[in-house]
Amino acid sequence: MARYLAGRIAGLVVILFLICLFTYLIFFKLSPDPALMICGKTCTPDRVAQIRSVLGLDQPLTEQFWNFLSGLFAGRDYGSGANLVHCSAPCFGYSFQTSQSVWEMILDRLPVSVTVAVGAAVLWLIVGIAAGLLSAVKEGTWWDRTAMGLALGGSSIPNYVLALALQYVLVVRLQVLPFPAAVPFSDDPVAWFQSYLMPWIVLATGYACLYARLTRANVIDTLAENFMRTARSKGLRPALLLRRHALRPALTPITTIFGMDFAALLGGALITETVFGLNGVGKMAADSIAKNDQPVIMAVTLLAAFFVVVGNVVVDLVYTGLDPRVRVR
């Protein structure tokens, strides 16, 4: 088990390194010169050269990449003498737009993205699995057909359409919710809940539809298994039959998919956060791309990659716990 884990973590490090390298190459070499952008319209060549030297852009590419990488783990210094700025680890540099520390920006916004992701996940798991389960048990009935028809439709609505429609209906027409504005939980729990409710619904809808269809298919497959026939031949109560014998085999594969989806969402929900004006990592990513704020783009890309890669390993570990057949002996 320890060897397996060590192998997985080694692979994780390699993948993160490669992602780091490619992101760096793409955003720092292929996009416009950051020094020109920082310098703005009233720019002199001297000023550009100065900025380049402070940022280390005058050094060879390998040097720059090394500085970036070591900055992540050990921190780094920008400039020299009186202008020296120390950026402590993990150092993602400073935003070209606001000169804020990128790491602090992330720490500031991550709670919003996590709140969005966790709330949506709870919602879609409950709705999706319950609907799928009910459809499987009532296979072929009007309930099944209606639910699966809705699920197919729901999974094909784009998030921004749903977000705007929901805002129009709930905020503008019915006025049951205030216009979305982020309120900290400690200030007013009710307003906090109201501000996150629509993002949760929007984000959860697509996933809930997908999970309902997956759950239904898995439960129907499981009900047709030979071991279900055995379980029935034993005279077990229907509740036990479903809960113990059908649900665990049917839901175990869904854990895997859930782990991936949730991990990806932790890296920020770009569209939903932007539409609802939530200051999460997703909105930060969207803003930074629009303004070509390279250190921020770099950081959000790495953060999202980190979540996905770590999520993968976590999923594998959870899976070995859930399915005795893949347990490493």
């Binding site: 030979n226 055995t230 034993k234 005279g235 077990l236 014998h245 859930l322 057949r325």
Partner: peptide
């Protein structure tokens, strides 16, 4: 019938691997 199954009449099947639940 549930009280008959297992209690009065029980059954064994062709493929014992797939007939036992792999999770328990």
């Amino acid at each position: 019938m549930r009280r008959v199954r297992g209690e009065q009449a029980s059954m064994i099947f062709q493929d014992p691997l797939s007939s036992l639940n792999p999770y328990y």
